[in-house]
Structures are given as structure tokens and as C-alpha cells.
């Protein structure tokens, strides 16, 4: 989903650039934040948009502070994160295993290509009604949605990664009679790793969207459900406070995985190349 952060690590400037950047005052981002906050405070007060439906930022933040002292918010947050994490882990494991298997066997790849291309663009929200009927309104429904959406993200990246294997390295491993497992472990896995990470990163943010969407639409307990309840009971300020929480959660997931990627793959010579993948 996010090509932007995929390209960012690859563009680490050469030696002289950081000095110039350090000399420049880093005021612009702060100004941007302050301006946005001011707009969020003043525009609702003027009533220009939607009359008094929009609460000013200060009252949203005050509401958020009040909610932070309430166990209900943290419990909902915990449930959302649990759905997200379980779904993500299942999607990643399934995507990697199936991806390596398909990537290893050319005939499997040829046979499954059209099916993958067909199933991948199907929006997983289309499954929501079916999931409600089959799995009910519990936590499993969210997990199923996340697994469906995340699986394709990981699978496609793994397939790209396996395709990217250096033919010489591959042939060398064969000549030295590496076992299949040895080839997977020492040739395929290291080559595919940056792609796998890109896939995990994409899947992580898609999974968060679906975890919250599932709660919003299905009514599984969690942040999304709180938002939907707040909306239908007209508690606008509370709703905006919760929306803010989901945004913070999203930022944490995005930056967390970006840093994890840099930490885990710092040694990898092809980190740059992974930027071009999708």
C-alpha cells in the first residue's frame, strides 16, 4: 500500500548531505503541525463546515484525556490489537510458505498465476456479509478478513522475491548439490527477505485497516465498534477522539515496521533494490 516508505531507506543520501541537512533549521515540520492543529481548532469554532457538528481540537483532546483514564478504551484497544496481530501472523506465515512453495516449482507458478491475479484484487470487505453469517460477530471474523487481505500482499511479494534470485547463485547451489531445504535456507530466503519484509509491512497496515473496519461494520468489540456506537449515539467529540486514536495506532504500526525493517535488513545488500518492487 505504501510505496513511499519502501523507497525511503534506499534514498539515504551520500556522506555530505546529512551535514547540510543538520545545518538547516528543522522548523518546517513543526510549523506544519502547529498550523494543522490551529486549523483543527479554529475551523470548527467558526462553524464554516457542517455547523457545530465538528468539535474543536481542544475539546477532542480533552475528551481523549478523559477516555485515557477509562479502562474501556484500553480494553477495546487491546482487542483491536489482538485481532490485528493474530490475523497478521497467520497471513504472513501462510503467505511465506505458499509463496516459497509456488516460487520453487515453476509448474505450480504457471498454473496458479491466473488464479492469484484473479483472487488478489477481490476486496476482502466483500466477504464481510459471508463472514458474519459463517463466523458470527466474534473476533474470528476480523481475523478471517485480515488473513484474506494480508495473505495476497505477502504472497505476491514473496513471489517477486523468489523470482529475483540470482541465477548464478542458484545454479551454483545446485552444482554443489544443496538439498532443497539448503537452497531454501541459504539461497532463496536471504534473497527474498527484503521482499518478504515489504510484504509484511504492507500487510500490517492493511490488517489494521481491516481490523478496525471489521469492528466498525460487524460490531466486534474494539475501537471500531466504539466509533460506530459513538456515531450512532451522537457523541461526536468522543467519536473524533477515537478516530484520533486509530490514527496514532496507524502511525505507530507504520513507523514501527519501517524501523524494524531497517534494523533487521541493515546488512542486506539488496535493501535498495526492494524499493523498486511495486
Amino acid at each position: 500500500m505504501k510505496v513511499l516508505d519502501a523507497t525511503r531507506p534506499g534514498k539515504a543520501p551520500a556522506a555530505p548531505a546529512p551535514r547540510r541537512r543538520a545545518a538547516r533549521p528543522r522548523i518546517a515540520p513543526l510549523v506544519g503541525i502547529v498550523l494543522a492543529a490551529l486549523a483543527a481548532e479554529i475551523v470548527p469554532r467558526t462553524g464554516l463546515i457542517a455547523g457545530d457538528a465538528l468539535p474543536p481540537l481542544s475539546s477532542v483532546l480533552a475528551e481523549l484525556g478523559r477516555q485515557a483514564g477509562d479502562a474501556a478504551l484500553w480494553e477495546a484497544l487491546g482487542r483491536t490489537v489482538r485481532t490485528w496481530a493474530v490475523g497478521l501472523v497467520v497471513a504472513v506465515v501462510a503467505g511465506v510458505v505458499v509463496g516459497v512453495l509456488i516460487g520453487l516449482v515453476p509448474i505450480l507458478r504457471a498454473i496458479t498465476a491466473s488464479t492469484v491475479e484473479f483472487l488478489r484484487p477481490i476486496p476482502s470487505v466483500a466477504l464481510i456479509p459471508a463472514v458474519i453469517l459463517v463466523f458470527g460477530t466474534g473476533f474470528e471474523s476480523g481475523v478471517v478478513l485480515i488473513v484474506y487481505a494480508g495473505f495476497w500482499q505477502v504472497l505476491v511479494q514473496v513471489l517477486y522475491g523468489v523470482q529475483d534470485i540470482d541465477p548464478v547463485a542458484h545454479d551454483t547451489a545446485r552444482s554443489y548439490r544443496f538439498s532443497v531445504w539448503g537452497r531454501v535456507r541459504y539461497v532463496i530466503w536471504p534473497t527474498a527477505l527484503p521482499f518478504v519484509f515489504t510484504g509484511i509491512r504492507l500487510a500490517a497496515s492493511v490488517a489494521l485497516v481491516l481490523a478496525i473496519t471489521g469492528e466498525l461494520v460487524i460490531g466486534t468489540p474494539g475501537i471500531g465498534q466504539l466509533i460506530s456506537v459513538a456515531q450512532s449515539s451522537g457523541a461526536t467529540t468522543e467519536m473524533f477522539a477515537l478516530v484520533l486514536v486509530t490514527g496514532v495506532l496507524g502511525v505507530l504500526v507504520n513507523t514501527g515496521f519501517r524501523y524494524a525493517e531497517r534494523a533487521v535488513l541493515g546488512w542486506h545488500p539488496s535493501v535498495r533494490r526492494s524499493a523498486g518492487a511495486r
Binding site: S205, V209, L216, V217, G224, I227, S228, G247, G250, N254
Partner: peptide, 9 residues
Amino acid sequence: ALPPTVLVP
């Protein structure tokens, strides 16, 4: 980072 669906309500 804001999940786009929360903007629906």
C-alpha cells in the same frame, strides 16, 4: 495512517 474506513462515520 488513519484507517480510511473510520472516516465513513
